[in-house]
Design a protein around this nucleic acid. Structure first.
Lengths: 309, 309
DNA sequence: CTGTTAGCGCTTTCAA
DNA sequence: TTGAAAGCGCTAACAG
């Protein structure tokens, strides 16, 4: 393995000069820099990061924590931005309670990374503290804001003239979001706020319940993509047209929505990943990123249409 | 930051002893090991990996290459296995041609990792060579074997009594797979081997074409999950029952298939990730892993049923 | 079983 | 603008 002093010898300079030249540090003549760079390349020299980190104190590595590799775009966006800035990405998948416990038991990040990016992980107080104790900057991508997504969806529907909007929440969503409907100027009907298991079957059952309940809403917003699909299938099976009879908006499951052609709120996940990375990189250089994170947006497809009196 | 010699001083031993004790190296009395470990823990000592790698020559890190973070289970499986073995995971996402070119231009792995895992990346000859040039073991997870999946699907259908099986291949699949049908004892009809864009709409159009073509097959195998969904939707819309009139098997898109309840071939991706990691770890310790990689399996749901004469 | 002594390959003063 | 020298915090021989 050729080392920096090998390159130095070959170029007829000192190791210090090679170091400075290769890193773009000032204090090297352009001629020397060019020459050294060329020699290094010719010798296929690859720097030993360990030695570099040890001597320099900077590790040029960031730990990326994620509970859910399924959220691929987020991860890819962050990776891309970090890589471009010259940082290595250490991946930690915290997919279940056990992995999580193991990780936070002795946070193994000390002296290993310059910063931490927490993607799609809801951190407890203790965990947050543990990360803080590592002594490097931490940036977390906030959870998706259901309220914000709902606002987008409802705004769209109102624009299409809908007034009778049902809201299907996945089981586990513990709050009610009626206030959003109210804020947007809709009347709230208790029987049109329903909870469902986050599955296609769940969605189908919701339609059954809605049909039993008398008047059908003219639009339904679902917090789960699978439920939205269930709604869609069951409605069609029942002879209803989507969107002519009922419009559907999904707040999750972009792939499913895209595949089936459902209007959906999508999270700009790749961009959020990039933004979070930029924020962390800013912290590492002592700067601050001014822009806010990118927000979710509505993708209009074929499952929403104007209200037909 | 407390260093190893700090721990050594606090424990009243030499740094070498601390090093040995903490790594579980032989040559330390159990009493000493226990004591040192405890002191280290109390001082919240975290080893400086850089220094350790530099001195020891081993990096305890593996580069994981992937073209597609979407294949999350594969990645999660590999990460979990590597992490458990004490290795760090350096993630490289090669999602587009540009990222790929940048990566392979000067493979940045030299002296950074002990091994490379290529997941869901089809490597060209040049790329393979470039990786080989890094001088560390490389393990690649082979592409999914469409032929093998098809065999599973067709076997299942034949077991159910089907003889008239159509095959829908995604555009881009350049080979024909009629031989598999033949090998399983089915007659091949040219009009029942069709290509389709890998979308729901594509699947719907396939059904239209099939309906135009006269007799409908009693079962359809689709190489794409979205196409399978399109088939399903269009058939039902047309008044056909699935599986009573037509059975459907999907060879891809596990989430979609699970959501809709389609019988599908699934890839055991998490297990493949774990297996690949185990293989690499074996190489790193000079051992060989004897077992073959886990293979795809059939998940029977509600879209396949017996042939009804 | 334990300690001492050299480095590992860089970066960073400090001089020249 | 360049070089010499002194570590960074560990591990690995080699002694004891």
């Amino acid at each position: 393995m050729t080392s920096m002093s090998d390159v130095a010898r070959a170029a007829g300079v000192s190791a210090a000069t090679v170091s400075r030249a290769l890193r773009g540090e000032p204090g090297v003549s352009e001629a020397t820099r060019r020459y050294v760079t060329e020699v290094a390349k010719r010798m296929r020299y690859a720097i030993a990061r360990d030695a570099s980190s040890l001597a320099g104190g900077r590790r040029y590595a960031v730990a990326v924590l994620t509970a859910d590799v399924g959220r691929g775009d987020l991860l890819a966006g962050a990776e891309s931005a970090l890589r471009q800035a010259g940082y290595d990405v250490l991946l930690y998948v915290l997919h279940d309670a056990e992995a999580r416990a193991r990780f936070f038991d002795d946070v193994p990040l000390g002296r290993r990374v310059d910063g931490v990016l927490a993607l799609a992980v809801r951190l407890s107080e203790d965990e947050r503290a543990a990360l803080g104790g590592v002594g490097v900057p931490v940036v977390a991508v906030p959870e998706d804001d259901l309220r914000e997504s709902l606002r987008l969806a409802v705004g769209h529907l109102i624009g299409l003239g809908h007034r009778d909007v049902a809201l299907v929440l996945a089981e586990g969503v513990d709050e009610s979001y009626d206030e959003v409907l109210v804020a947007e100027g809709l009347a709230v009907r208790p029987e049109w706020t329903v909870w469902s298991s986050p599955t296609v079957v769940g969605g189908e059952q919701v339609v059954d319940a809605l049909l039993d309940g008398g008047r059908l809403p003219t639009a339904v917003v679902s917090s789960s993509g699978e439920v939205a699909l269930g709604l869609f299938l069951r409605l069609r099976r029942d002879g209803r047209e989507v969107p002519a009879d009922v419009s559907i908006v999904s707040l999750e499951g972009p792939e499913l929505a895209r595949a089936v052609g459902l209007t959906a709120v999508e999270g700009a996940w790749r961009e959020r990943g990039e933004h979070a990375a930029a924020e962390l990189l800013g912290l590492l250089r002592g700067e601050r990123v001014e822009s806010g994170p990118p927000s979710a947006h509505l993708v209009v497809r074929n499952s929403t249409g104007p209200y037909i009196g």
